[in-house]
Design a protein around this nucleic acid. Structure first.
Lengths: 66, 66
DNA sequence: ACAAAATGTAAAACATACTTTACTTTTAGT
DNA sequence: ACTAAAAGTAAAGTATGTTTTACATTTTGT
């Protein structure tokens, strides 16, 4: 699972901590997802996309093997 | 988390088992998600939406408390 | 009404997301 | 160079998604 979180954060100019707060998870969770360490729940993926004003598919992309 | 899986399946006229096969999970998993018993992973949500030719947000909807 | 297909359900085992606490490393601003 | 903020990392614990096996109930077609 790939994602654009870093880019979208840069556009909004917000930190991982700020995004975490906006979607109600911990900073470590955002960090891990942003780095592709694991795949979020659909709930969190939708909240993150919504925080960026984007569709889930515009922020996350399935890869071979997902 | 609400979803339209039943409706989308009806449009394609496929069973839970057929959808399960198309997105590579068990029939019980589709059943549980369709009935709202739990929220899928982002991976599975994206595969299901893709199976229907829809965006994740067109198939799943966040509710209060999610 | 009957048979077959589809759906619902449940418990145990397993896999993975998420939190908490705490520490290290990198980046940005002065 | 110094400091503060931001990002990276890690281990243990908790919560939840997914599978497997198995059976019960409902729906559909003839």
């Amino acid at each position: 699972m790939k994602n654009n979180i870093r880019v979208e954060r840069a556009i909004l100019n917000i930190s991982q901590a700020e995004l975490a707060e906006r979607v109600q998870v911990t900073r470590q969770t955002i960090n891990a997802i942003e780095l592709g360490k694991y795949v979020p729940s659909a709930t969190l993926a939708m909240k993150i996309a919504r925080a960026f004003g984007k569709k889930v598919e515009e922020v996350f992309e399935l890869e071979e093997g997902d």
